[in-house]
Simulated assay, not measured.
Amino acid sequence: MLIRLATDDDAEAIWRIIGPIIAAGETYLLPRDWTRSDGLAYWYEPGHEVFVADEAGRVIGTCYLQANKLGGGSHVANCGFATAPEATGRGVARAMCLHTMERAKARGFRAMQFNFVVSSNARAVGLWTSLGFDTVGRLPEAFAHPTLGYVDGLVMFRRL
């Protein structure tokens, strides 16, 4: 698996991954009815450095790296991750996170923060914890999960 910068040619493959995740409404704080145009505009937002996990020419995951905030918070990185359903459980998100942590260090970031990890997303919480992220905040019932009702949002942080 190769983690590389995304190109314009990757847009359809990225939408194939993020579109169903957005529509499911279980992990991202995004409108579930977003169109392809909306989703790709968000993923390729100015300031996002977008990557794909490429396995033999097939995109099986995507992520972006950005500054978490501007000004006094610009030394902390933030990322978003999405894995294709057929690649779930194969270490794709782990590889992308390790890659973005190294890239963040190279760009001068001192830490990485996930502003809102849905607490019911056990795979993500477990992965980020295994990579050294601590839960530094809990937002009670801050996420309206489409099937579980109101669940907590977690703020997770790791120094680089």
Rank of each mutant, 00 (worst) to 15 (best):
Met1Gly: 10
Leu5His: 13
Ala6Phe: 07
Asp9Cys: 07
Asp9Tyr: 05
Asp10Lys: 08
Ala13Tyr: 06
Ala13Cys: 06
Ile14Gln: 14
Trp15Glu: 01
Arg16Ala: 12
Gly19Pro: 01
Ile22Pro: 00
Tyr28Asn: 06
Leu29Trp: 07
Leu30Lys: 14
Pro31Met: 07
Pro31Asn: 06
Arg32Lys: 15
Arg32Phe: 12
Thr35Ala: 14
Arg36Asn: 06
Ser37Met: 00
Ser37Asn: 06
Leu40Phe: 13
Leu40Met: 14
Ala41Arg: 13
Tyr42Thr: 08
Trp43Phe: 10
Pro46Gln: 13
Pro46Lys: 12
Gly47Lys: 15
Glu49Asn: 11
Phe51Asn: 13
Val52Asp: 12
Val52Met: 08
Ala53Arg: 13
Asp54Tyr: 04
Glu55Ile: 03
Glu55Ala: 07
Glu55Lys: 04
Gly57Tyr: 06
Arg58Cys: 01
Ile60Gln: 12
Thr62Glu: 15
Cys63Val: 14
Cys63Glu: 15
Tyr64Met: 00
Gln66Val: 09
Ala67Glu: 15
Ala67His: 02
Asn68Ile: 00
Asn68Asp: 08
Leu70Val: 08
Gly71Ala: 14
Gly72Leu: 14
Gly72Phe: 12
Ser74Tyr: 07
Val76Asp: 15
Ala77Gly: 09
Asn78Thr: 14
Gly80Trp: 04
Ala84Lys: 01
Glu86Arg: 02
Glu86Ala: 04
Glu86Gly: 03
Thr88Glu: 13
Gly91Val: 11
Val92Cys: 02
Val92Lys: 00
Ala93Val: 14
Ala93Pro: 08
Ala93Ser: 04
Ala93Trp: 03
Arg94Tyr: 02
Ala95Val: 09
Ala95Asn: 10
Met96Gly: 08
Met96Val: 01
Cys97Trp: 05
Leu98Gly: 01
Leu98Ser: 03
Leu98Met: 10
His99Lys: 11
Thr100Cys: 11
Met101Cys: 08
Ala104Lys: 00
Lys105His: 07
Ala106Pro: 01
Gly108Glu: 11
Phe109Glu: 02
Phe109Thr: 03
Phe109Gln: 02
Phe109Ala: 01
Arg110Phe: 04
Arg110Ser: 06
Ala111Ser: 02
Ala111Gln: 01
Ala111Asp: 03
Gln113Val: 03
Phe114Gly: 02
Asn115Thr: 05
Asn115Pro: 03
Asn115Glu: 08
Phe116Ser: 02
Phe116Ala: 05
Val117His: 07
Ser119His: 03
Ala122Tyr: 01
Ala122Thr: 12
Arg123Lys: 11
Arg123Trp: 05
Ala124Phe: 05
Ala124Lys: 05
Val125Thr: 11
Val125His: 00
Trp128His: 13
Trp128Ile: 10
Trp128Phe: 14
Thr129Leu: 02
Thr129Cys: 04
Gly132Ile: 13
Gly132Val: 09
Asp134Met: 04
Thr135Arg: 10
Val136Leu: 05
Gly137Met: 02
Gly137Cys: 05
Arg138Ala: 01
Arg138Gln: 11
Arg138Phe: 05
Arg138Leu: 03
Pro140His: 10
Pro140Cys: 07
Pro140Trp: 10
Glu141Val: 03
Phe143Arg: 00
Phe143His: 05
Pro146Ser: 13
Gly149Arg: 09
Gly149Ile: 07
Asp152His: 09
Gly153Gln: 03
Val155Met: 12
Val155Arg: 15
Met156Pro: 07
Phe157Leu: 04
Arg158Met: 00
Arg159Tyr: 05
Leu160Asp: 08
